[in-house]
Design a binder for these strands. Structure first.
Lengths: 184, 184
DNA sequence: ATGCGCATGTAAGAGGTTACATGATTTT
DNA sequence: AAAATCATGTAACCTCTTACATGCGCAT
């Protein structure tokens, strides 16, 4: 049940569903992702439950927006979520499933190609995160440890995102070498 | 669409839904997880689609089992999956969402308690995986690089599982130190 | 006039969780 | 006699994805 809480978290200023989608794509995509078709009904549900309220407003470009804000009850629900257990639901990694059965009847060259693909994937993700970090660092001398609390904790999610990608990359490189060493 | 393929992967010998659940809990839980209530219908669907076949058999303990095996078509579907793109669907990390909004109105001590909880969680996971590895290593002198192909690739999923937990743990420890350094 | 970015949605379906239901055998 | 393990399932519900639907305003 993280999505509704994340939406509440984004309502420090009044935001539209469209704004929220931008925020997901720009700042949260290393740990969460949602489609507009999931966001819009979720916002309506928050209003039904009294956790958010909505009012229409003209947009600079395009049609009217619906701007959502947290109610007091919404702020309490957000705060309770932040103080509750870390949400460490078990994660599913399909690519590890593929690898798990790779030795059964497949050629080592299939596995090598598989790891090359994976490496390219993780490498691209790491580079994207590094670009975000470089840009931040260049424009803010307080980066990272002197940042105000809000960006300080956000930076921590960037930190782990970056480190995860590096861990995956190292593993790909190591695994390719191990497979190649067996080819002879 | 990984679950049906994983089920097919497990059918090197005829297996029951119950056997599959054991396998998930013992050998695959670092990267995949499924409830019996999801496995049973999924197996029936594989039979309907001609990817698996089923026959009843007496069990040593308890009631009769239904043993599932791959058909030729099932083997082809499995092989196609292994040769296809690595399944790197975007992953959702609720705990990073909590952290992302932690700086908004919460006390640093909430964040410290949060990271302590997280650290305990990842630490326990790492220790469980290390026990699996230690046991394997002690009983098989060919571990890890001289293993036959099948266990060799399985070991690679254990390798990344272990490294991921370590990455998470290091991050928790580093983050706790960074938060504490700001308390003064 | 065509396409892109802005803006909001609905519907159908796949994937996954939680709760419930049944019953045999083995262990304490 | 009770509890744990073995064994199979259904139903309701929640979450998320994919496809479809609509329309404005601006740039090429």
């Amino acid at each position: 049940m993280s999505l509704p809480h994340i939406l509440l978290g984004m309502m420090n200023q009044p935001v539209s569903g469209y704004d929220i989608k931008q925020e997901f794509d720009h700042s949260l995509k290393h740990f969460w992702f949602a489609e507009l078709s999931q966001i819009y009904p979720a916002l309506k549900k928050l209003v039904r439950e009294g956790l958010a309220e909505v009012h229409s407003a003209a947009s600079e470009k395009g049609p009217d927006k619906k701007l959502y804000s947290r109610t007091l009850k919404g702020s309490e629900a957000l705060s309770a979520w932040l103080k509750s257990e870390p949400a460490t639901a078990p994660v599913r990694h399909g690519f590890m499933g593929q690898l798990f059965f790779m030795g059964n009847r497949e050629d080592p060259h299939v596995a090598l190609a598989f790891f090359q693909d994976l490496l390219a994937h993780f490498s691209a993700r790491r580079k994207a995160l590094e670009a975000v970090e470089a840009n931040w660092k260049a424009n803010d001398p307080s980066y990272p440890d002197k940042l105000p609390d809000e960006p300080f904790y956000m930076q921590m999610t960037l930190d782990i995102g970056l480190n995860l990608q590096k861990t995956y990359e190292d593993w790909c490189i190591r695994s390719i070498a191990r497979i190649e060493a067996r080819l002879n």
